[in-house]
Design a protein around this nucleic acid. Structure first.
Length: 460
RNA sequence: UCCCCAGUAGCUCAGUUGGCAGAGCAAGUGGCUGUUAACCACUGGGUCCGCGGUUCGAGUCCGUGCUGGGGAGCCA
């Protein structure tokens, strides 16, 4: 006999005989002559109420079932005589698979997020984290669906790389050399002795790989883990996070911005439609305005403005900022927050940044001062997407690499793409966890990834 | 890496001027009840983050370290 998931039973239109469920006990309440057991199997936020009558042969054991115990229930799905739920299961048989001792750390009451991080292996058993990780799963699916529906191909970019990909942050070294007996050559570590015969790192971005495939398959995307060894202590940074990186051939910056906006709207709508119950939990307990904010994002156009006009607005705002703003300086968190939370009160796309503050691969505009870059900013989170039109002209790309002292030899294969059939192309990177924060209202990135990796924290 | 805050029961916290270690919840036991973050009663539960110092006496004051949180930078 096959088990039925609780999500299916709760949606049932009619009673059903002989159903089988398997799950974990959230709480048990005794009445005279019977016991109510709330069972959750992870298929949805809601529990199903099981009524176990004292006539059951193992009732003395049943009345000792504790929170966190695993059970298998056979019985009939019947309309509940109580208020508060439509269906319940009248049990024929309650098998106690595993009884949780009273040291089980999760209570029926709410815990703080800080405490739950210390038991990250158990927190998905709570309502909030169960909901968060179901939404994470749905959102992953929605990303693949979004791209597939639009003819994009999914590329598995490498996790281990030999180049430092644009210098986007500190790198994690990958090596098989034992640190206690490193062979040295001229005082430097001799990486010729290492597994790959040269230095290797964990990827910080799949972009360069994605560009190569965009110039072959047209429209592509990557969706995978990336690693930054930054010593960041904020609620928006982790050392291991997932990034979505589309890359499109024959596409300029405007097409890039269009895709970014369409994608965020699509994904927001998808979760509003597909994860109603889970989303409601966040609207109720985490951010009262969540649904309104999401509806607003899904239905209204993002504000687009150039970096230059953003700077003008900030200068004219009359607001005193900790960091001065002037053309050529990067926007600070306080500037981004002012623009997206106070001035426009909606998602923004800022484009055409000064080339001095952006990486080498971004296409230089005709003014020779700015590059075709764009950032998407959302209220509370800040930057959620960073992207650009890529420099497709070999001579200009080489000149920029020279300017910042990059090795053209190392990137010979990247430059090859500009030698053979080079075309204008664009792409961006979306921080998957940041999008998840935006959609759920969860304010700490450590709470939207199953086992967060941060400085000094690798348990679990 | 820098700035700020915190660390007391399983959890969330209180602890006055330096003078006997506390509450609510959770847990255990009993009772009651178609209950539903159930209710009532009782019971057990402490390395007051570590180390050092001041003092007759330190949860409380001083120094230092560790851990957690918030913010900044870096970025997604």
């Amino acid at each position: 006999m096959k088990r039925t998931r609780i999500v299916q039973l709760l949606q049932s239109e009619i009673p059903a005989n002989k159903v089988l469920i398997k799950g974990w006990v959230r709480t048990r309440r005794d009445s005279k002559g019977f016991s109510f057991i709330e069972v959750n199997d992870g298929s949805c936020l809601k529990n199903i109420q099981v009524l176990a009558d004292s006539s059951l042969s193992n009732y003395p054991d049943i009345s000792r079932i504790s929170t966190g115990s695993a059970v298998i229930i056979n019985g009939n799905l019947v309309e509940s005589m109580g208020t508060g739920q439509k269906w319940e299961i009248l049990a024929d048989r309650v098998e106690i698979v595993s009884l949780a001792p009273d040291s089980y750390p999760l209570q029926k009451k709410r815990h703080t997020d800080e405490f739950l991080r210390t038991i990250a292996h158990l927190r998905p058993r709570t309502n909030k984290y169960g909901a968060a990780f179901r939404i994470r799963s749905e959102l992953s699916y929605a990303i693949h669906k979004f791209f597939r529906d639009r003819g994009f191909k999914y590329i598995h970019s490498p996790i281990i790389t030999g180049s430092d990909c644009e210098g986007a942050g500190e790198l994690f070294r990958v090596t098989t050399l034992a640190p206690e007996n490193l062979s040295k050559k001229d005082g430097m570590v001799d990486y010729a002795q290492d597994f790959f015969g040269s230095e290797a790192n964990l990827t910080v971005s799949g972009q360069l790989s994605a560009e190569m495939f965009a110039l072959a398959l047209g429209d592509v995307y990557t969706f995978g883990p990336t690693f930054r060894a930054e010593n960041s202590h904020t609620s928006r940074h982790v050392a291991e996070f997932w990034m979505v990186e589309p890359e499109m051939a024959f596409c300029n910056l405007e097409g890039n911005m269009n895709l970014a906006e369409e994608m965020i709207k699509y994904l927001t709508n998808f979760i509003i439609e597909e994860s109603k119950d889970d989303l409601e939990l966040f609207a109720k307990f985490v951010d009262k305005n969540l649904i309104k904010t999401l509806d607003n994002v899904a239905s209204s156009d993002f504000k687009r403005l150039s970096y230059a006009s953003a700077v003008e607005i900030l200068k004219k705002s009359g607001k005193k900022f900790e960091y001065d703003i002037d053309f050529g300086k990067d926007l600070q968190t306080e500037h981004e927050r002012y623009l997206t939370e106070h001035h426009f009160k909606k998602p923004l796309i800022i484009f055409d940044y000064p080339k001095t503050i952006k990486p080498f691969y971004m296409r230089v505009n005709d003014d020779d001062k700015t590059v075709s870059a764009m950032d998407v900013l959302v209220p509370k989170i800040g930057e959620i997407i960073g992207g650009s039109q890529r420099e497709e002209r070999l001579d200009i790309l080489e000149k920029r690499m020279d300017e910042i002292g990059m090795s053209k030899e190392t990137y010979w294969w990247y430059l090859d793409s500009r030698r053979f059939g080079s075309v204008e192309h664009s792409g961006f990177g979306l921080g998957f966890e940041r999008l998840l924060m935006f959609i759920t209202g969860i304010s700490n990135i450590r709470d939207v990834i199953p086992f967060p990796r941060t400085p000094n924290s690798i348990e679990f």
